[in-house]
């Protein structure tokens, strides 16, 4: 479905202390190349309380965002500050760029719709044995009715309110903000998570682990294709771990055919920023 190459590095919006990705291509890129799947958090505007069919934006854990920024595959934008700055200081060029991007999106939608209709019409024609040439006009007629792409009409409407005449509902206001503005309003990196970074760099995927009493469920590949192998919790090197927590975690993980993983960063003597991450896997011994 991707029509344009995904923007790189990936843009992560920081809004109210949460790290969100609004662009579908970026979310796909992160999932495919960076083994970051995140959590879908967007719901349907007419059914805001339903939580079965969730979509964009994708929410990332702060430590995932940190790991991506550190690897220079993503950058953070303080979206509230950036939007306020742009909207309070109207700039004709920025406005035009935004309207152009909406127009492009509309044209893309129109084209896809027309192609789909043409395909469907051709299929129907084939089934009924009607020569395709006689139906050629059909898709265009549909198109006109839905999008009213009559040139004179659309241009007159564009003058009194450009946004109104465009038939698409934008899912993101990302194109309103230029890369320069994004650079000015870059958000600070959140606190790091050494275990999360280690797991990401080792090619593992993570989903929230709360339902198994841990911080992460760790998958050896995409969570849609694999079962989790580990329930993982991060500890500081000298943080006290009650033995009962280890027994409980090990038992629960074994009951769901996983191993309980504890891990953390070993402090370095020479004060270099990245110490070695050490992990330990626990399983019930069945004796």
């Amino acid at each position: 479905m991707a029509t344009a190459p995904a923007p790189s590095p990936a843009r992560i919006s920081m809004i109210a202390g949460r790290y969100l990705v609004f662009d579908a291509d970026t979310a796909a890129l992160l999932r495919r190349n960076e083994n970051v799947n995140g959590t879908l958090t967007g719901t349907a505007p007419q059914q805001p309380t339903q939580n079965i069919f969730l979509g964009l934006p994708v929410e990332l854990r702060p430590e995932e965002a940190e790991a991506l920024v550190r690897r220079k595959v993503a950058y953070l934008v303080d979206d509230v500050a950036a939007h306020q700055s742009v909207l309070r200081n109207p700039d004709p060029d920025a406005r035009k760029a935004y309207l152009d991007s909406l127009k492009t999106r509309k044209q893309t939608a129109q084209r896809v719709f027309a192609e789909q209709n043409a395909k469907r019409a051709a299929e129907v024609a084939e089934r009924h044995g009607v020569p395709a040439s006689r139906l050629k006009k059909l898709p265009n007629a549909d198109d006109d009715a839905l999008f009213s792409s009559n040139p004179s009409e659309s241009s007159s409407r564009q003058q009194d309110g450009a946004a109104k005449s465009l038939g698409v509902t934008p899912t993101s206001s990302g194109s309103l903000i230029s890369r320069e503005t994004e650079r000015v309003f870059g958000a600070e990196k959140p606190a790091e998570g050494p275990l999360c970074r280690f797991l990401l760099s080792s090619g593992y995927y993570m989903t929230p682990g709360l339902r198994f009493g841990a911080k992460y469920s760790v998958y050896p590949g995409d969570p849609l294709r694999f079962h989790a192998h580990f329930m993982a919790s991060q500890y500081d090197w000298d943080e006290e771990i009650p033995i009962l927590d280890i027994v409980a975690g090990g038992r629960l993980a074994t009951a769901v055919k996983k191993a309980f993983l504890i891990g953390g960063q070993e402090p370095r003597l020479d004060a270099s920023p990245d110490g070695k991450v050490r992990t330990f896997s626990l399983e019930w011994a069945a004796m």
Binding site: S202, P220, H229, F230, I246, V247, G250, A253, T254, K257, K258, A259, L261, R278, T279, F280, S281, L282, E283, W284, A285
Partner: peptide
Amino acid sequence: YLMHEGMVKP
């Protein structure tokens, strides 16, 4: 409980 060093799959 069996405890392994590193990530050992279950």
